[in-house]
């Protein structure tokens, strides 16, 4: 236990204490820290704009996580069915974006989605589009970029849970005459769902809080929680409101993560019992 003491002390001073301060400051009415009240929370929940920012952010995380899940499963299925060389190649491709800096990955999407970017150039030269489309600074562009940026967080847990799946089960289903699609739906999917949920939660939390990608690819007109907090703190210097925003955001994200995690564990027990 003794070796853990220095880190515990550091965490008390630089992690626990700040969180307590964050809660305390959110309970003040003004930036001069006079008068305790719940005014900041009343302000948030009576402001349609702030509420829309929060629901948009949650929706963004959920949407990105769902699409990455749909892309990750086929990759994982191919990975498991492949030989060593193909597996190494897929691992490398998955690790590549994970290890490149977020700003670099986001920058890549600015290049791809821009007016003279690849997508516009390709579509124009194929004659599919008459004029360059606006892709950068749109919701769809931002979702696409986040899907690519967060895909590794989904692919790794899904691959891991597929690797742990007992191959006899799929072989038994095959021997009994089930089609491959039916094996996937009735055997593979239910048994690997915990890995999928783990990946979904990782991507959800990462996409909802991805400040850089949200501001650079989404642009200034799409306001999400991270940039809302940043604006209120650094722009307006409204410390109590930005503290309240941070807490509401943190509770919303961690609440969803823990609730889904608990549901998933109950589901696993149900599967084991059956």
């Amino acid at each position: 236990m003794l070796p853990a003491v220095p880190l515990a002390a550091l965490f008390l001073a630089a992690f626990v204490l700040p969180l307590i301060a964050l809660v305390a400051i959110s309970l003040f009415r003004t930036s001069q820290f006079e008068e305790l009240s719940l005014a900041q929370y009343v302000r948030f929940f009576s402001d349609p704009f702030s509420i829309k920012v929060l629901t948009d952010t949650i929706w963004l995380g959920a949407e990105v996580a769902l699409v990455t899940l749909i892309i990750a499963y086929p990759i994982a299925l191919v990975y498991v069915a492949s030989g060593q060389l193909m597996r190494t190649l897929i691992t490398f491709l998955i690790m590549l974006p994970l290890l490149t800096s977020t700003v670099v990955r986001t920058f890549a999407w600015i290049v791809l989605l821009g007016r003279d970017g690849i997508i516009n150039t390709a579509m124009l030269s194929l004659g599919l589009w008459q004029a360059p489309a606006r892709l950068l600074y749109t919701w769809e562009g931002m979702v696409l970029a986040l899907i690519q940026i967060q895909l590794p967080l989904m692919a790794l847990p899904v691959i891991n849970s597929l690797l742990r799946l007992d191959g006899n089960l799929t072989r038994a289903a095959e021997g009994l005459g089930a089609s491959r699609a039916r094996i996937f739906v009735t055997v593979i999917l239910p048994l690997t769902l915990p890995g999928a949920i783990a990946g979904w939660l990782l991507v959800f939390a990462a996409a909802a809080t991805a400040f850089i990608t949200q501001t650079l690819v989404g642009g200034g007109r799409i306001i999400l929680m991270a940039s809302h907090i940043y604006q209120q703190a650094v722009g307006v210097q409204d410390w109590p409101f930005s503290a309240a925003l941070s807490l509401i955001f943190t509770l919303a994200v961690t609440g969803i993560v823990f609730a889904t995690g608990a549901l998933s564990r109950r589901y696993v027990r149900g599967v084991d019992a059956a």
Binding site: F15, V16, L19, L22, T209, Y230, S246, F249, T250
Partner: peptide
């Protein structure tokens, strides 16, 4: 302690940065 040391991972980094600045 293990849960405490892991918790910066679930806390949005933005909220943590702001809270440390406030302190």
């Amino acid at each position: 302690l293990d849960a405490l040391f892991m918790s910066p991972m679930v806390l949005p980094a933005m909220a943590f940065g702001l809270s440390l600045l406030l302190v």
